[in-house]
Write a protein that binds this DNA or RNA. Sequence first.
DNA 1: GCAAAAGTGTTTCCACTACACCCATGA
DNA 2: TCATGGGTGTAGTGGAAACACTTTTGC
Lengths: 230, 230
Amino acid sequence: MVLNKYVSEDKVLLAVDCIIFGFDEEDLKILLVKRNFEPEMGKWSLIGGFLREEENLDQAAIRILHHLTGLHGIYMEQFYVFSKVDRDPAERTISVAYYALIDIAAHDKKITHIDKAQWFSLKDVPKLIFDHDTMVERAMARLQQRAKDKPIGFELLPEKFTMRQLQKLYESILDKNLDKRNFISKVNSLDILQKLDEKDMTMSKKGAFLYQFDQEKYNRKVDEGFNFKL
Amino acid sequence: MVLNKYVSEDKVLLAVDCIIFGFDEEDLKILLVKRNFEPEMGKWSLIGGFLREEENLDQAAIRILHHLTGLHGIYMEQFYVFSKVDRDPAERTISVAYYALIDIAAHDKKITHIDKAQWFSLKDVPKLIFDHDTMVERAMARLQQRAKDKPIGFELLPEKFTMRQLQKLYESILDKNLDKRNFISKVNSLDILQKLDEKDMTMSKKGAFLYQFDQEKYNRKVDEGFNFKL
DNA sequence: GCAAAAGTGTTTCCACTACACCCATGA
DNA sequence: TCATGGGTGTAGTGGAAACACTTTTGC
């Protein structure tokens, strides 16, 4: 028989909040919703929900993201817990924050059906409820850090993309301009992209070659202890 | 009036577990205790406790560390949340893991009064309860990462230390040998140490100069956006 | 005088940076 | 023919790594 020895301890509500990053060829954005319950109903907020008895936090994050956006198979990573005593005025709530990376273009139809969900450029994020502003800041910092040692950028792009798109994405994440030639040779040196025979003709008359992330090659390199730095 | 709209949500126990790193001139170690309550009484465990209503997680971590070791003013950092459904067989418990860095020598007297607390070399850690092994692994990974971009190593050394000690510490953390000359010139280039006129005579006939971390200089450099990399 | 740790510089190499021109095409 | 974005190479610089000998002094 297993005794419950913890009966005298306080229990708390454990929330999961998601910072959903997207990229639309130009700008890094996050997805926000108008909160439809009290407190702070009608204000802009991250999407979130509560952990349930039968799931772990990763599962909760996936469930919440899926429930509110219809999206599956999204890259998510837990990055920090926010626990200020009065962060939620309604009740003591601890929130585990996750960030998610999605390709806006591929999933836009699914998302836009949601009432009151809207993409905001990072430069242009409104005041959010509770400590959600802090969460966004911190998610951004973590994303910048991660971008430098793991090729997560690809999660934000369509399966096929041009070098130009990739560069613009990294410029958005790192918030600085990069040199075209240097960027390309760095990326090529990683040797994790497949150059396709197709071209993207939407951006120029000449057309730009499309590339594709090669997950297998990447996995092999990770196994070999290859040290990614972008 | 603020309504509690969350009444239907599940509440959970939120634990804090601490991976306490120490360094003793030779080896990187962690502090473990023999658990004195059920379940798993008598097995080796990280120190931990539960979050209380009136505190945030950082405060809880500080309280728990202080309560079990008598130590104050210790460097601590939250690094991950563990939430597997059955991680604690007694009851659903989510654990927020912190790592702490302490100077064994300076605090050893205080710590050793604790029943059943013991330092273990990292190479030599026994099987721990629950998922504490995973926590230790992950803490170690985080420590290695942090050591590279923030001079946290000094938290593990006495106030005054020799270059040799500092090097051995970094060798322990990074788990690889470093070149003496390269290490010293890298450290010197950071320009955050004060060389003292004193020498440590315990390790050699010649004696080795003692150094001291210069917090002010460091803070100034951080403000100036200096990019630490060790 | 020798063992044991402290201290000290130089060279090599590679990765990062800066930088400018031609190409292909549709209009 | 020209405007637009696509594509390509090189030289210079700075930090990281490799590397060996002399100094001090207690025994």
